[in-house]
Amino acid sequence: STGEEYIAVGDFTAQQVGDLTFKKGEILLVIEKKPDGWWIAKDAKGNEGLVPRTYLEPYS
């Protein structure tokens, strides 16, 4: 699937089932941008889950 690459600007630990845990500096592939501010993203290992958009910045 296609998506946009974003870099994590902080650590995030999953708070509920379906969230994706990530560390600062990780590159995430954003698959869907939901209007509530929680985006669906995939990490380098292929894990998929919800992430808070405030922790992400476009990666170029």
Rank of each mutant, 00 (worst) to 15 (best):
K45Y: 06
T54M: 13
L50M: 10
D11A: 13
F22A: 12
Q16P: 11
V51A: 06
V51I: 09
Y59L: 09
D11K: 09
Q15C: 06
P35H: 06
I7P: 01
Y59T: 09
P52Y: 14
W39M: 15
V30N: 01
D43R: 05
G49P: 00
V17H: 04
L20W: 01
I27P: 06
K45T: 09
L50A: 04
V30D: 00
P58F: 08
I40N: 14
G46M: 11
L28S: 00
D19V: 14
D43Y: 00
G25M: 04
E32Q: 09
L20K: 03
L20H: 03
D43S: 10
F22P: 01
L56W: 00
I40L: 09
K23D: 03
Y59D: 14
L29D: 13
L29M: 12
L28P: 00
T13A: 03
L28R: 00
Q15H: 14
I27Q: 07
P58T: 07
G46V: 01
A14V: 08
A14Q: 09
P58V: 09
I7A: 03
G18Y: 05
G10I: 13
G25H: 10
G10M: 10
E48Y: 02
T13S: 04
K33C: 12
V51P: 00
L29A: 09
F12Y: 13
A41R: 00
Y55F: 10
V17N: 02
A14P: 13
L20D: 00
V17Q: 06
K23M: 05
I40V: 11
T54S: 14
G37Q: 14
K23W: 04
K23S: 08
D36M: 12
G46Y: 06
A14S: 13
G46I: 01
K34W: 04
Y55A: 12
T54H: 13
V17T: 05
D11S: 06
A44S: 12
G10S: 08
K33F: 05
A8L: 02
E48G: 13
E48V: 12
L28Q: 01
P58W: 05
V9G: 10
F12I: 14
G46D: 07
I27K: 11
V17Y: 03
Q16S: 15
E48D: 13
G49W: 01
F22M: 13
A41C: 10
G10H: 03
A41D: 00
T21G: 09
K33L: 04
L29K: 05
A14G: 09
K33S: 04
V30Y: 01
L20N: 01
L20E: 00
